[in-house]
């Protein structure tokens, strides 16, 4: 395709990409206009990101300046008395995300392995479509279902309100399942068939082949899948808000109401001013830092995977 549109010299590395390629054969203003329009559209994401970070920094500045770092990362939240500790929410966010991953990832991995190695085509189609649909379900629906079914269940089993980290983790597990399963399956599928063949030809069973060759080879990709799942859980607000409580208190166990960064921001954004409002921005900044950290981790893993296995099993 490429060579038809760009009849110039397409040899060498430049052939991979149009941009920066050999001399553009379609010189002229029209081409330049198109190029610039597209470039500006493409730049919006980067500029937008930059502006977002700048805005968050600016708006959270009063909180950093007036409340101070130690106050902000303390356990005490009481804006009326000048206490802006976000630790409760930070803990809540980490707990529900980790819980969601702990419940969701094994299920997702099992699904991915089944689809990769065991499922017959009919099953594969049904389950694959199911995952697609599940990925598209609005989070409000999952939250609502969680509120109407999970919470009463937890309440009847554990007492109390039935709200808290456990139901939130369960809702998040369902939410990240399609993400993790799909990416993990892609990385399993990306392992060259020849590895499996070599293993089978030595008398290995399907499971032995999976456990000793396929899964270890796909592992960086599977880790990436889980990290992206974690990222999704980290940022989820609506569904969590409906089953987390909420209450501004550390959870005493998995079924007592608590709060997360996202739910706190959502509930208080409309009624806050001054440093209180600014501290919500600080929370958003912390959340952004967390998810950025995860993305860096993904990068690191990808690079490591490429070094160890230049063939490239990573799919993202």
């Amino acid at each position: 395709m490429t060579s038809q549109l760009c009849p110039g010299k397409m040899a060498g590395p430049a052939a991979r990409s149009w941009a920066g390629g050999p001399v553009n054969p379609f010189k002229g203003q029209r081409e330049a206009a198109i190029r610039w329009t597209l470039r500006i559209c493409a730049l919006i994401s980067v500029v937008g990101l930059f502006l977002m970070v700048a805005f968050l920094l600016r708006e959270s500045l009063p909180a950093w300046r007036e409340a101070g770092f130690t106050n902000l990362f303390a356990a005490d939240w009481n804006p009326g008395r000048g206490k802006y500790g976000i630790l409760i929410f930070l803990v809540g966010t980490m707990a529900v995300s980790a819980g969601g991953l702990m419940l969701g990832a094994p299920l997702a991995l099992a699904t991915a392995i089944y689809l990769h190695a065991y499922a017959r085509p009919a099953w594969r189609r049904v389950i694959g479509k199911g995952l697609e649909v599940l990925a598209g379900i609005p989070s409000i629906i999952l939250g609502w279902l969680g509120f109407t079914t999970l919470v009463p269940l937890v309440r009847s089993l554990a007492g109390g309100t039935g709200m808290g980290i456990l139901p939130a983790s369960m809702v998040l597990a369902v939410m990240i399942l399609p993400t993790v399963a799909t990416i993990a399956r892609d990385s399993l599928d990306a392992v060259p068939e020849s590895f499996a063949e070599a293993s089978f030809s030595m008398g290995a069973t399907r499971w032995q082949t999976l456990r000793r060759v396929i899964i270890p080879t796909a592992w960086p990709g599977i880790a990436v899948a889980m990290i992206l799942g974690l990222g999704r859980a980290l940022g989820e607000t609506m569904a969590v808000a409906m089953v987390i409580g909420p209450a501004t208190a550390f959870p005493r166990n998995l079924t007592t109401p608590t709060h997360t960064l996202t739910t706190k921001i959502m509930l208080e954004m409309g009624e806050s001013t001054g440093v209180h409002r600014s501290s919500l921005f600080a929370m958003a900044l912390v959340l952004l830092a967390l998810s950025t950290l995860l993305i860096l981790l993904v990068r690191l893993l990808s690079r490591k995977a490429v070094q160890e296995f230049p063939g490239g099993v990573l799919t993202c």
């Binding site: 590895f195 070599a198 030809s201 030595m202 008398g203 290995a204 099993v313």
Partner: peptide
């Protein structure tokens, strides 16, 4: 026993396919 068979009859493939180990 297929596993036993494949153990007694080993195979080397067209393209070298060592495991990434």
């Amino acid at each position: 026993d297929v596993v036993g068979l494949r153990r007694r009859v080993g195979m080397v493939f067209q393209k070298p396919n060592p495991f990434p180990k």
